[in-house]
Amino acid sequence: MNPFRILIADDDSTIRSFLATLLEDRGYEIHEAPDGEQAYRMAGEVQPDLMLLDLIMPFRDGFDVLQDLKRQDATAHIPIIIMSVKNREEEIVKGFDLGAEDYVVKPFSSLELISRMKRILERSRS
């Protein structure tokens, strides 16, 4: 079976590198986007099985990327987990309203993140 493709969209290279190491160790195929514009473009090209999306990024913010991906037929099916320092109720609700599958507040627990990802990926494959 092919490994799950994960797109990590975050402008913080330390976070990208941490997540890439964490997920590659567990057999996932990783793609990285350092800004909102590239995140949007790569989601269409790579067709990931799951996307981890930061909200505060250069060129396009995460909400904008999420909204546009959910509007396009080719990318609407991609499950997206928002990962952000924004932790206010209205921001979390907005994320879910725009179609995010889950919302993880930074700082985050890596084990918890893996468990949330597995749940979503298993559901999408079944």
């Binding site: 913080d12 330390t14 976070i15 941490f18 930074k106 700082p107 985050f108 627990s109 890596s110 084990l111 918890e112």
Partner: peptide, 12 residues
């Protein structure tokens, strides 16, 4: 310390 910024739980 750079990684400690955004982690909690066991990794932290």
């Amino acid at each position: 310390l750079d990684n400690a910024r955004f982690l909690k739980g066991t990794a932290r």
